[in-house]
């Protein structure tokens, strides 16, 4: 009987093998295919790629320096020479925006990365071990959440002192609860999967289970959350700089530039308008890309 079965199985396997020969798309191609269906997300994605390239390559292509003061040409309106005009000290706004891009993106990526580095392990430990550890960690997170975001960041920056690095740290600390909560939830779900029990019954250590079997399961909500959080991190950082708590002059940070333009908003609105628009575009790009990413990474929405 056993032999017969094996024969049957062999027939079966030929069919399966043929099915195998049909090319499977690589995960990246598959992902891009699904992202492509959402046109807005694709635009967001390309905007982010384009801006990232500009922030790296741009400074080498520009003839002016963001701190070049040209008092004679101050308050020039946008023209062929000064695309976005000049500010109250005659500095070229276009040059400053291009140079400022790396600070904006740096704060966005940096704070989210830092926040994830701290929040993800906390969430995994809380969800995986449960009980008292879970309670302890999550109550700490609740305390963090009890402060309004900008207020917490303000408090941290006033303790650490105003600089872009400190703003990054402040925003990162505020990102921790979001990551920890999302990861804890996904870990709770992943922990209950039967294959995690099965691998534990094989003698796998907790660390091994977490890295090989839990982490891949929590990665997609983390990526989506990170992308969406970059947008709000950029906004918070710009807000802090606008309030004078972040980037210090003459750093061409967009929030700080917005603040510079505040006094002349009725006479020379373009000084505030262009940095403001830049912030809007970047935040919008990250938001619509994050939304598209969520749809693309959700297996339930496949096809």
């Amino acid at each position: 009987m056993a032999n017969q079965n094996i024969e049957q199985n062999t027939d079966h396997s030929e069919v399966e093998l043929q099915a195998m020969n049909v090319k499977k798309p690589s995960p990246w191609k598959d992902f891009y295919k699904r992202l492509k269906r959402n046109k807005a997300a694709l635009i967001g994605f390309y905007t982010i790629v384009f801006l990232s390239i500009v922030s790296i390559v741009g400074p080498f292509l520009l003839s002016m320096d963001p701190s070049d003061v040209d008092v004679i040409n101050k308050f020039s309106r946008p023209s062929a020479e000064h695309w976005f005009g000049t500010d109250h000290m005659g500095r070229d706004i276009f040059t400053r925006i291009v140079y400022g891009m790396k600070y904006t993106l740096g704060v966005g990526f940096g704070s989210v990365f830092l926040g994830a580095i701290m929040g993800v392990p906390l969430g995994i430990v809380a969800g995986y071990y449960g009980g008292r550890i879970d309670n302890f960690i999550m109550r700490l997170i609740d305390i963090l959440l009890a402060f309004p975001g900008i207020l917490l960041a303000l408090a941290i920056v006033s303790i650490l002192g105003g600089s872009l690095v400190n703003v990054t740290i402040a925003v990162a600390i505020y990102a921790i609860p979001g990551f920890a909560r999302i990861v804890r939830g996904s870990t709770l779900a992943a922990k209950k999967l039967e294959y995690v029990d099965a691998i534990r019954a094989l003698g796998s250590s907790d660390l091994r289970i977490i890295f090989k079997h839990i982490l891949p399961n929590v990665s997609s909500p983390v990526i989506v959350n990170a992308t969406l959080y970059i947008a709000s991190a950029i906004l918070t950082a710009a807000g802090l700089s606008f309030l004078g708590m972040g980037a210090q002059p003459p750093m061409p940070e967009w929030g700080a530039m917005l603040n510079d333009g505040r006094d002349y908003i009725f006479d020379a609105g373009y000084i505030a308008f262009f940095p403001g628009m830049a912030i809007v575009i970047v935040v919008l790009a990250f938001n619509i890309f994050g939304d598209g990413l969520r749809d693309a990474l959700d297996p339930k929405l496949k096809n």
Binding site: A198, R200, A201, L202
Partner: peptide, 24 residues
């Protein structure tokens, strides 16, 4: 205990569909 699990005492589960990690 970890040295015993899977080495001296092993266990198989009810659902072969969910007892294997689909990503490996």
């Amino acid at each position: 205990m970890r040295k015993i699990r899977g080495n001296q005492i092993s266990m198989i589960f009810q659902e072969p569909m969910t007892s294997l990690n689909p990503t490996y």
